[in-house]
Design a protein around this nucleic acid. Structure first.
Lengths: 147, 147
DNA sequence: TTCACTGCAAAAGATTTGCACCCTC
DNA sequence: GAGGGTGCAAATCTTTTGCAGTGAA
């Protein structure tokens, strides 16, 4: 399984005339082993446990590469830190957020997904990904008075 | 028209026990006069044309304030710069963003809007607003090689 | 009079880059 | 052997903050 990811990455690198290195292999392995989104900083900390000689700049550079290669998705919490997640075993989802209690429900609507592609295509775009945040009030909070 | 915005802002400030200042007034005016999204940097440049004595930190601070007050919305293009837009006289729209050239097309799809409401209702939510960002490659950039 | 506000400059934090050496392909 | 890759440190870039003076309420 991990072997096939190495192969896929290897292929990607070959296509771009880039090279596979022990560092890139190590960073990919650590990245795929974590089932949550990670900042470059956080990944760097974990990578150092495996190989302390790897530098932070290499982690930044490799994470960008993994994003280009399609192994990593950018997740933006709008707090100044870029986070990445891999979708191996992960499904895409959008967010339904209650403005009062901050409850966050992960949702997916296949029809909306399809219409997003259509909409983009009408404008000549090919989508790589999207983010959708729906804000409102949940059932519980709707009954209560404002805080 | 602008006067009423001053009043609304004034009210907001009073409620929060904050103060109206010439700087805040000037920044609000300039912000509302621009019909596109602006970064703090860009707004600062425009504000300086009106009053060169206003500092950049004040623009950053005021923009945050305007966002809290509901005059400004954060628009996130995922490129490390926070942008703001006002919705005075603006219809709601979503964003179709080219990841290469950063072109931003404002889009609305009534069917998607409707399905969003449906989706929310199925989860017991009533929506107040939403943000949708579609990321991809535009027609022009799709032909070019990576930078 | 009282604090919030401001400009400035320094600080902070995240990410990028220049460089000399290293090592895949 | 050629050219991409790496670690390190310095450099950038955006945004925040400390401070001493200013001014709105």
């Amino acid at each position: 399984m991990t072997a096939s990811h190495h192969e896929m990455f290897q292929d990607y690198l070959a296509r771009k005339r880039l090279k596979m290195t022990p560092q890139r292999r190590a960073i990919l392995d650590v990245f795929l082993s974590v089932e949550e989104h990670l900042s470059s900083e956080e990944l760097y900390a974990k990578v150092k446990q495996v190989d302390p000689s790897i530098g932070q700049a290499t982690v930044y550079r490799t994470l960008k590469l993994l994003a280009d290669a399609g192994f990593a998705w950018v997740v933006d919490f709008n707090d100044g830190v870029t986070r990445y997640e891999h979708q191996v075993g992960h499904a895409h989802h959008d967010h339904l957020i209650c403005e009062r209690c901050r409850t966050n429900i992960e949702v997916v609507d296949p029809e909306i997904e399809r219409l997003q592609e259509d909409l983009a295509r009408r404008h000549g775009f090919v989508l790589t990904h999207h983010r959708m945040y729906l804000y409102g009030l949940c059932q519980d909070c709707r009954g209560k008075t404002a805080p």
